[in-house]
Design a protein around this nucleic acid. Structure first.
Lengths: 133, 133
DNA sequence: AATACCATGTTAGAAAACCTCACATGAATA
DNA sequence: TATTCATGTGAGGTTTTCTAACATGGTATT
């Protein structure tokens, strides 16, 4: 998993933000999770926290539903895509140790805090920009 | 204001997420707002919602405090930077009508929903990627 | 036509997260 | 020593989110 993937899978957004970005209702979003089309992270207090990847998925789900595909169909499509992606990875990479959520956060924070430190104060556009490609 | 600026100023994150990304306490973040170093948006219910720009600013604040600059100093630095940025804009741009928050949201949603629609389902990386540079 | 199923709406009650305000504190400074 | 500054902490209240249950309007099936 490279840096971009790490950033895209970071749990950042509450459901209200996701509702606005996707124009889906809370009911819809939870229903899709119930059917395992997404698996948003949870806070200690059990609130959902969505990543950029989650939001992409939701937009895909919305798209496919609009085209008449049902839950089961979407699930199959996602399974296929996952398989395909896995093949790609195996082709290009060697095994690396998995990171826990906590480690991911640490990693991101570290990059955020220390990268480009020399000129942050003088740049019009701040560092966070580097984390969303 | 161009597309990137729109994206970077969208209110997206609750304070808990910002706390983790910046390693600041809620107290600190609110204190900096009190001193008008940041001005996060609010939900209808008065919860703070932070943008990428807000987060950048908080990281700058943290940096400057570490270097011994106090609130007043940081405020002046920000004022200067703002002036500088304004000059740049006036130099390069003609007047454009301002957008309300609601219009911004609409605009982003529209881009999100319709851009790249043809191949979204077949792409490994979804559309949202376009919104964070 | 009646029935069943699917995706979604709605409501209730509980818990988490967030809010403001007030007071406390330790370090630096006058 | 007294003040100021940046931050911690706690109380009490409001908003947001949670799950669970039941309601509903299309579609498909019998």
């Amino acid at each position: 998993m490279n840096g971009s993937e790490i950033r895209r899978s970071m749990p950042l957004f509450p459901i209200s933000t996701v509702m606005q970005l996707t124009e889906l209702s809370a009911r819809q979003i939870r229903y899709y999770e119930e059917h395992q089309l997404i698996s948003p992270a949870r806070t200690e207090g059990n609130r959902r926290l969505f990543s950029l990847n989650d939001i992409d998925r939701l937009l895909e789900i919305k798209d496919l539903l609009d085209q008449g595909v049902n839950m089961a169909g979407i699930k199959q499509l996602f399974l296929l895509k996952a398989q395909h992606a896995e093949e790609q990875e195996q082709q290009a990479k060697k095994a690396k140790p998995e990171l826990t959520d906590e480690e991911l956060r640490k990693h991101l924070r570290n990059e955020l805090l220390h990268a480009g430190k020399l000129n942050r104060s003088s740049l019009r556009q701040g560092d966070l920009s580097r984390f969303f490609h």
